[in-house]
């Protein structure tokens, strides 16, 4: 058994208090580039109070269709982002992963890729999923490279699905199957 299921090489996955989540997410969201890399809806600015209330209402144990974590660096124990599995189709063993590194000073330094590796292991060894899916915007090359490093393959493109700054951009879909993940991770069951 792997006792360090939540820990990677650079980050660990955590649960945080709604108070801190409200404050932190509300400040991250003021970075419009972060929001527009993350989400296809127009970015909104919500108060710390409102976000806190959402977390109080929604993030409880036993929500069956999704689960999410916060990301903290191992070295400084800083809260830098979040990651989660949503739209879990239990009968088919498929789920969608989403990740955001809200602290832009941490972009491009391997934290996201490490967090992705941790949640893939969680999805395949704890939830026993058969595959994991994600969608990423065509203009987010850094994320696409990170996902490829973690083992994802491009499965297609929703053509021109996003309309931003006067241009139409594809949404790229990527997936990783259980056996592909196992091949990358060498079936280290007994370490």
């Amino acid at each position: 058994m792997n006792g360090n299921l939540f820990r990677g090489e650079l980050v660990r996955l955590t649960a945080e208090e709604p108070e801190l989540l409200g404050k932190t997410f509300s400040s991250w969201d003021r970075d419009s580039e972060f929001r527009r890399l993350l989400d296809d809806e127009p970015p909104c600015l919500w108060s710390a109070k409102k976000i806190k209330e959402w977390f109080e209402k929604d993030s409880y144990e036993g929500d069956e269709s999704g689960l999410s974590f916060c990301i903290r660096t191992l070295q400084e124990d800083c809260l830098i982002g979040f990651i989660g599995l949503w739209d879990i189709e239990w009968s088919h063993g498929d789920a969608e992963v989403g990740i955001g590194i809200g602290d832009r000073e941490r972009w491009g330094k391997g934290y996201g890729t490490d967090a992705m590796r941790v949640i893939l292991r969680y999805g395949f060894t704890e939830l026993n999923l058969e595959r994991i899916t994600l969608g990423v915007f065509g203009y987010n090359g850094r994320a696409i490279r990170s996902y490829e490093k973690a083992g994802f393959t491009v499965e297609g493109r929703m053509r021109q699905a996003l309309y931003r700054d006067g241009s139409r951009v594809d949404i790229v879909f990527m997936g990783i199957l259980r056996h592909e993940w196992q091949a990358l991770n060498g079936e280290r069951r007994e370490d």
Partner: peptide
């Protein structure tokens, strides 16, 4: 446009889910 490989499990076999656009 997209072929989600083996995304469905029905009757003991895995099938792709297609996005058509």
């Amino acid at each position: 446009e997209v072929r989600r490989r083996k995304a469905l499990n029905r009757d003991g076999r895995r099938w792709d889910l297609l996005h058509l656009g």
